[in-house]
């Protein structure tokens, strides 16, 4: 029963990813991306990682989707995806080869029984991985600064005032 649930969720996620890739309208791709995020977060929740599932759902399906729609509203209706430079069969062949090789390499590693004896996220995050927390704080700060800098409108005549 659990296998069927995983199969349905992941098949849905891969289908949405494919539709997001081939869709000509970027707004549709954005909605498919939100669906992928929602389905992925359900799978993560079923694996037992509840905190990360909530984070993925709120950030991936919420914040990023809102940002994408905002960017599309600024960019306008010409945000269509033109035809690719690389021939699609070549890209498909390359990706297929890489994916099969990856699966072939990883498959023997997961043929193990699941080890029990888990430590909760809070103790890992605040004790052994406290550097990650600092990195996240720095990343968020630099991201906010980067966006403020990039989205700031240049006022006309500002550079002349500086040179004068």
């Amino acid at each position: 029963m659990e296998s069927i649930e995983y199969f349905l969720l992941l098949t849905g996620a891969i289908f949405c990813a494919y539709r997001a890739t081939v869709s000509k309208r970027i707004l549709s791709s954005t909605l498919y991306l939100a669906c992928i995020s929602a389905l992925t977060s359900v799978v993560i929740f079923m694996l037992g990682a509840t905190q990360v599932a909530v984070m993925e759902l709120s950030v991936g399906a919420g914040l990023v989707t809102v940002l994408m729609v905002y960017a599309l509203s600024v960019v306008g209706e010409d945000a269509l995806d033109p035809t690719s430079v690389i021939p699609k069969p070549l890209a498909l062949g390359l990706v297929g080869t890489v994916t099969i090789l990856l699966g072939w390499m990883v498959y023997p590693a997961i043929q193990v029984t699941i080890v029990s004896g888990d430590v909760d996220l809070a103790s890992v995050l605040w004790q052994s991985r406290v550097l990650d927390v600092w990195i996240q704080i720095v990343l968020i700060f630099s991201g906010v600064m980067g966006v403020l800098g990039l989205l700031s409108e240049r006022t006309p005549g500002h550079s002349e005032e500086v040179h004068a």
Partner: peptide, 23 residues
């Protein structure tokens, strides 16, 4: 195994999209 195939599938579609996308 199903989760592993799903991860490989998502990675494959993402790489494919990255190769063919121009926008």
């Amino acid at each position: 195994n199903i989760i592993l195939i799903g991860i490989a599938g998502l990675l494959g579609v993402g790489f494919y999209g990255l190769l063919i996308t121009r926008n």
